[in-house]
C-alpha cells in the first residue's frame, strides 16, 4: 500500500501500469536501464523491439516474476512485489504476492499448459485452488471460456494432443479464468506455425474489444497497428519511442525506430 503522500511515488489516475526509471540487472548485466511506460486502464499497449532489448524482461517485472533493481513500477498505483511503508519498500509475504498476481494474467510464448491436466482442467485448477470456487462452478465457467476461444470441442483433450494455436487459445482462456484486470502477453504467436498465428490473434482482438487492459510483447506489427492503442519501441533496455501506432509506423521520430521498422515491415 502506498501510504506515502509524495505525489512523485504515485501513478496518474486510471493508469493500469505506470513505470518510471525501471532498472533490472542479472548479475553484472543491466538489462533494463530506466524504462518509462504508461498503460491507461482499458487500453492495449504493444511492445516491439529487437531481441535482447529487454521487452520480455520488463513484462516479467510487471507481475514480479522478476524483481526490479530500481525505479518505480506500479499496477493500479501499487507495487506488485513490495509495500511502501515509511519510505521503505518491504518485500510482501508470499500469500499477498499470490493474491496480487492472481489479478494479473499472463500468456507465454511456449503456452505452458499443465501437461497432466486436460484443457478444461487447466482452466479449473486455479479458480478452485486460489479463488475457492466449487468444481461445478469452475467447470461451468471453464466451459464458457473454452466456448469463447472456440475450443469447447477439445475440453477433454490433453495439451499434447492440441496444435500450438489450440494450446495458446486454451492458455489465454486459462488466464481469463481468474478474471484478471490486466493481461500480459509474452510473444504469444512467436512459437506458432505461420498458418496458426491468425486464430490466436483473432482471440486477442476479441479480448481487446472487450475492454480489458493488455500489454503485448509481439513481432506482429499488423496486430499492433490494427488493435494497439499505443506502440512502444524498446531498444537497449530503454523505451526509445512510444505513441500512436499508425502515426509511429508512418512517421517515426527516432532514427533507431525507423531502422528497426524498416527491417520488420
Amino acid at each position: 500500500m502506498t501510504t506515502d503522500s509524495d505525489p512523485s511515488l504515485h501513478a496518474p489516475e486510471n493508469m493500469m501500469v505506470y513505470a518510471r526509471g525501471v532498472r533490472k540487472s542479472f548479475g553484472k548485466v543491466e538489462v533494463l536501464k530506466g524504462v518509462d511506460m504508461q498503460v491507461p486502464t482499458g487500453s492495449v499497449a504493444c511492445i516491439i523491439g529487437p531481441s535482447g532489448s529487454g521487452k520480455s524482461t520488463f513484462l516479467r517485472c510487471i507481475n514480479h516474476l522478476e524483481d526490479i533493481s530500481g525505479g518505480l513500477l506500479l499496477v493500479e498505483d501499487k507495487f506488485v512485489g513490495y509495500d511502501l511503508i515509511d519510505d521503505r519498500l518491504h518485500v510482501v509475504r508470499p500469500a499477498e504476492l499470490c493474491r496480487r498476481r492472481a489479478d494479473i494474467g499472463m500468456v507465454f510464448q511456449n503456452f505452458n499448459l499443465f501437461g497432466h491436466l486436460t484443457a478444461l482442467e487447466n482452466l479449473m485448477e486455479a479458480p478452485i485452488q486460489v479463488r475457492g470456487l466449487s468444481r461445478r462452478e469452475a467447470r461451468d465457467r471453464g466451459m464458457a471460456l473454452l466456448e469463447r476461444v472456440g475450443m469447447a470441442h477439445k475440453a477433454d483433450a490433453w495439451p499434447r494432443q492440441l496444435s500450438g494455436g489450440q494450446q495458446q487459445r486454451v492458455a489465454i482462456a486459462r488466464a481469463l479464468a481468474m478474471d484478471p484486470k490486466l493481461l500480459l502477453f509474452d510473444e504469444p504467436t512467436s512459437a506458432l506455425d505461420p498458418e496458426l498465428v491468425g486464430e490466436v490473434l483473432a482471440v486477442m482482438l476479441d479480448l481487446a474489444r472487450s475492454g480489458i487492459t493488455m500489454v503485448v510483447v509481439t513481432h506482429e506489427i499488423g496486430f499492433a497497428r490494427e488493435v494497439g492503442d499505443q506502440l512502444i519501441f524498446m531498444d537497449g533496455g530503454i523505451v526509445e519511442e512510444a505513441g500512436d501506432p499508425r502515426e509511429m509506423l508512418r512517421n517515426a521520430r527516432s532514427e533507431r525506430t525507423r531502422a528497426f521498422l524498416s527491417h520488420v515491415l
Binding site: 507481475n63 516474476l65 499470490c98 499472463m106 507465454f108 505452458n112 499443465f114
Partner: peptide, 14 residues
C-alpha cells in the same frame, strides 16, 4: 519444465 511453475505462479498459486 520451469515454465509450469511460472504459469502456476502467474495464476496466483502458492
Amino acid at each position: 519444465p520451469p515454465g509450469q511453475t511460472e504459469a502456476a505462479a502467474t495464476l496466483g498459486m502458492s
